[in-house]
Design a protein around this nucleic acid. Structure first.
Lengths: 360, 360
DNA sequence: TGTGAGCAGGAAAACGTTTAACTGTCCAGC
DNA sequence: GCTGGACAGTTAAACGTTTTCCTGCTCACA
């Protein structure tokens, strides 16, 4: 067994300490009676070796429980086998919007089987914090590529990452025509358009939209789609509100709007948590959903169909987006054969119980 | 500028390619006119150098936008500056339980300012998947330490990590007396006990408990606390149900219980999402909360006070736990001065609107 | 004039892999 | 008998840092 262990020239008990220390490829090589090069090639399936040698090496690997040091592999020029993601949100907003969790789950479901890690950085809202994070990720060569979400108006990250030569993929709609690879669903506006059709078909005429933060690219886009869809029926939005993603703000905003005389009979909201807040606000002010007010959310988070009434919403295939994004970076890295990415299900209106005929 | 660049012996345009490649410490050294050793010492604040030299080096660093390669630093024996976390849950359960997001946010809030990364792995529920993930993290030396959550009955991870010599900290209650460092709140059972007191005080006598999966350590513990608190009033649980963490299961379980003749008048649930599902189930079967049924959740997730009625719950300081956990690993690594960890607020009953007097 | 301290900084090894280039042996074919 | 090729590996360089000794040099002081 341990008979073949190399006895390096070293201080007497340094060796002892060494032995209990991490096991390296040389230990494996010594135990298998071959060179480190042979071990490396065999575990990486590179050269051609007789079965007997391969077995000896494999046994040694298992016996010593060896795995190549990620640092050494990375240094040697191979890959880090890690993908980065920087979330530019404050912790509590992040928390109240499970959107991220779903996306990350999708990403990991592709990364994990390929033995890649996800290096997550949650930085505050300040734009330079995110930039610093990316810069560090790149110059320290901590990751092979990054996944971006929530592109913003005038987003500086694309240029930054190009400059840093860090492969990247954006989940969502890029700002202008940024040449960064992008994953998104086909017909991505259809869901929102359908939502408007649905409401108009139910007789609603006073329909408002509560958007997320203005600096997100999708905020403007979705609102535009909303407005255009209304325009096709000769209508215009009764209210255009901008909230942040936190439920509290949305709640009081909605309460205020509902208190006015020209209140909407239906509200479309930028995500499901905002819709949940709106629902609560309506109930709190003595209104019933959908009798007095119809609500449509966005994303189709699991919470939506636990509610009473169940939430009508525009389903987004967040996990699918995450999966596609992960595969896209891996393709750029040559870790995954090129080819079409898996389909991302287009946004789709899911009619449940929070929408109904217009009152009166 | 580039005049001092070393001209390595190499093919003609290989050099050109090299130049556009990543910048290394030698480039900085050449530009500043010193050795790489000097650069290293100066940026790490080690030796003593005259201010002029320090300035030259700093300028060169900035000019070339250099940062030490994480791989090289790690290989040299310093730290990876990354902490690992393995979530042994399926993606959709992870998603429907925002508990994780909050914890992660807390962890990152301490890690980020110290330039540490969080390497996240989401593996399925199979126990060996998690074990493999830890093993890889350790043998590949990808992280300096790990944070564990959700200790399970007979949890093999502690022994595993000790064997791997990977510093670890557990968030929550260890199984038996595992000698792994642990962060948890003081008086961690008080919240649950108060919940029972609260219900009994409102006149409830038929009180049930809906727990999470049996293999979690806290499942048994909380249920025991629940049962004991009832016993102090000469009562015993009217129902003890075990659900998973998914809302669906809980919903149908609660519907079923409410349909029986000996139904409880109050229900305590293992987390807020389960309470939300229970609320919906009650409403769906025509019952009003809290008139016909009182509900108490656990964790105090933001969603709880967006609901109608607002959820009475046992608040847990998840972000605080995350922060303390992060600091605890950093202390073990010597990255953070030893000292008391920040206080984690003890679990605390937050009475809101989902609990009321017992009916009839 | 010699000596030692203190300063400013350099040379080189080490960390653990991967890989290009090479070596030695054996055998087939001419 | 010699060449060429396949086989079964080995040697050594390279990746980019950090760190442990070093080496000159200057200057004060005996």
């Amino acid at each position: 067994m341990g008979r073949k262990d190399p006895a390096f020239a070293a201080g007497t008990d340094t060796v002892a300490q060494r032995r209990t220390d991490r096991v390296t490829i040389s230990d494996v090589a010594a135990l298998a009676g071959v060179s480190t090069a042979a071990v490396s090639k065999i575990v990486n399936g590179k050269g051609s070796f007789p079965q007997a040698t391969r077995d000896r090496v494999q046994r040694a690997v298992v016996q010593l429980n060896w795995a190549p040091s990620a640092a050494a592999v990375a240094l040697r020029g191979a890959r880090t086998r890690a993908i980065g993601m920087v979330a530019g949100r404050t912790p509590d907003v992040l928390n109240s919007d499970p959107h991220f969790a779903l996306l990350i789950a999708g990403i990991e479901s592709e990364l994990a089987p390929r033995d890649h890690g996800l290096l997550l950085h949650i930085v505050g809202e300040q734009p330079d914090a995110a930039e610093r994070a990316y810069r560090r990720l790149a110059t320290e060569r901590r990751v092979d590529g990054v996944i971006l979400t929530e592109s913003r108006v005038g987003d500086p990250r694309f240029a930054l990452l190009r400059g840093l030569r860090l492969p990247a993929v954006l989940v969502g709609t890029p700002w202008q025509s940024d040449p960064v690879p992008t994953v998104r669903a086909a017909e991505q506006d259809q869901g929102m358009a359908d939502a408007v059709e649905h409401l108009v078909g139910l007789g609603h005429r006073r329909i408002g939209y509560v958007s997320g933060p203005e600096d997100r690219v999708h905020t403007g886009r979705r609102r535009a789609v909303f407005t255009e869809a209304l325009a096709r029926h000769g209508l215009s939005p009764s209210h255009l509100l901008a909230s942040d993603f936190a439920g509290q703000t949305t709640g009081s905003l909605v309460e205020k709007v509902l208190a006015t005389a020209d209140r909407p009979s239906a509200l479309v909201l930028a995500n499901d948590m905002m819709a949940l807040a709106a629902l609560a606000a309506a109930q709190r002010t003595g209104r019933q959903v959908p009798r007095d007010l119809s609500l449509i959310g966005h994303d189709d988070l699991p919470v939506g169909h636990l509610l009473h009434p169940r939430l009508t919403t525009v389903r987004q295939d967040l996990a699918g987006l995450g999966r596609a994004a992960a595969l896209s970076v891996l393709q750029q890295l040559g870790e995954e054969p090129a080819g079409p990415l898996p389909e991302v299900t287009p946004p789709q209106l899911v009619v449940r119980e929070s929408t109904g005929p217009a009152p009166g």
